[in-house]
Amino acid sequence: MINVKVMAVLDLVSILQKREIAFSVEDGTTIRGLLEIMCSQYGPELEKKIYVDKDKELLNLNLYLNGRHIHFLGGLDAVLRNEDTVLLIPYASGG
């Protein structure tokens, strides 16, 4: 098992009821796998917030692994390592 930290901001915090959550997952778990675990734990409200549709290929938010956008790390198939931090940022703008 490995330990990963999930960090969320904006309205995800109210769904997860925490800003940071620790997960223990199987070695070799991908980001996709982690999101599945989270959705099973937190239900359809979170699922709707993460995915555009039921195919679960298109994301409704930005995902970062140790600060780097997952687009540059293999996307949803990026494999997690011990002590990784996964950051979820819903679409936002305006600075």
Binding site: V9, L10, I89, A92, S93, G95
Partner: peptide, 16 residues
Amino acid sequence: EFSKHGTPMTVDVTGG
């Protein structure tokens, strides 16, 4: 989002 929260939501984004 923006119409509801305005630019302050960027505090949360940049903080993240």
